[in-house]
């Protein structure tokens, strides 16, 4: 129990980032800030994956025989993919926010909902 904090340091950081990110996503009314929160939230999971692949004193058993103890390189590769996915999500999100700003002139959710509802015009 004594080394619960230093021994599991990365996991505690992951938990902190996870909750902080989720809080920003839920609480912020600014659309860009929400995306920032989403990134923090995703980073927490990335950190968790990377941590579980690492062992103290271990090296990657690639191109070398008899590496003992060895770190598992697979989670790192998985996270490389997940980071790409995260970047793509952020890009699509920011593109949407930029078009929302063009259409409504604001990126603040409250100001958008304050606008009167525009009935779609009737097409001939």
């Amino acid at each position: 129990m004594a080394d619960a904090v230093p021994g599991l340091f990365n996991y505690w950081v992951a938990v902190a980032l996870f909750t902080a990110g989720l809080l920003i996503v839920l609480d912020s009314r600014n659309m860009v800030k929400k995306l920032v929160g989403l990134n923090v939230f995703q980073s927490a999971v990335f950190l968790l994956f990377i941590t579980l692949g690492k062992i103290e004193g271990g090296r990657a058993p690639i191109l070398a025989e008899g590496v003992e103890p060895y770190s598992n390189p697979l989670p790192h590769v998985l996270i490389l993919t997940a980071i790409v996915v995260g970047v793509a999500t952020t890009a699509v999100g920011l593109a949407l926010v930029s078009r929302i700003r063009d259409a409504y002139g604001t990126v603040h959710e409250d100001e958008i909902h304050d606008k009167p509802h525009i009935e779609p015009e009737i097409m001939p």
Binding site: V25, M31, L38, Q42, V92, G93, L96
Partner: peptide, 8 residues
């Protein structure tokens, strides 16, 4: 946008 946030 809302779907993106919830979906992500």
């Amino acid at each position: 946008y809302r779907y993106l946030i919830m979906g992500a």
